[in-house]
Amino acid sequence: MYKIVTKRELASHTNLFEFSSKEVAAKTKPGQFVILRVHEEGERIPLTVAGVNIEKGTITVVCHEVGKSTRKLGSLKEGDSILDLLGPLGKPAEIEKFGTVLCVGGGVMVAPLHFQAEAFHNAGNRVVGVVGARTEGHLIFEDEMREVCDEFYVATDDGTKGYKGLNFLEEFLKERKIDRAIVTGPLVTMKTVSELTRPHGIRTIVNLIPIMVDGMGMCGACRVTVGGRTMFACVDGPDFDGHQVDFEELMTRMKMFTPQEKLAYVFHEEGGRRP
């Protein structure tokens, strides 16, 4: 059992959790993920780690409630425990002094982006941060990001705060020399930013967490085509070259279980009666 030491609501249906696990905290690096299971009937949920506190022996994740499993997790309180926490999984992000690093994050994935941005900052890079969300109310980790960024921008899909969408990056990239780009967020964000950086030849790293079950290379559900080759995101990634990823295929694969997820969600909301 792994205890929830802290729970904080960051936005509607979006919570930050700190789980107690000294050993996982001691080993987890930016870019890696964990798999957790809330209860005996539960799914294995992969979540990118948003931070660790080695002294406290905790890891931080941020989870947006999208279906039954994440809703269950969201219903837990501080002091409650989850059944399983496996990690760290995947390869750590490549953190080096590259020069100027552009860190773009969208939605809940801004939290794990911050873990990386902080590491790039500490490694002596000039960090340019861009955080986005659908709308102002869904923006998270703004202050935390601002602290580790030398330059900082906000964008929302509806323009309620900062730039409207990410198209401003097109002009921005023409004027500036960027040595590396890191993009975490919804697939569409990662795809868009990868397309914007491609003409400038900026090496662009995306963090992929497709559908997966075991997270250790056994099931192959997370397979993704990168540069024409099939890779497993869980063990070969989760970081990949955004210019090589077949996003169209991945987007299709991400929808594979959508009807079942809806069914499970309804089943959960109806109090467990068989629909």
Binding site: E41, G42, E43, R44, K68, S69, V213, D214, M218, C219, G220, A221, F257, Q260, E261, L263, A264, F267, H268, G272, R274, P275
Partner: peptide, 23 residues
């Protein structure tokens, strides 16, 4: 993969979906 299929069915008990969450 047979592994994915069998892990879903056996370890995660997808045959008892939606009582178990994994489909």
């Amino acid at each position: 993969s047979a592994n994915e299929f069998l892990i879903r069915v056996n370890l995660m008990k997808a045959y008892d979906f939606p009582r178990f969450d994994t489909p």
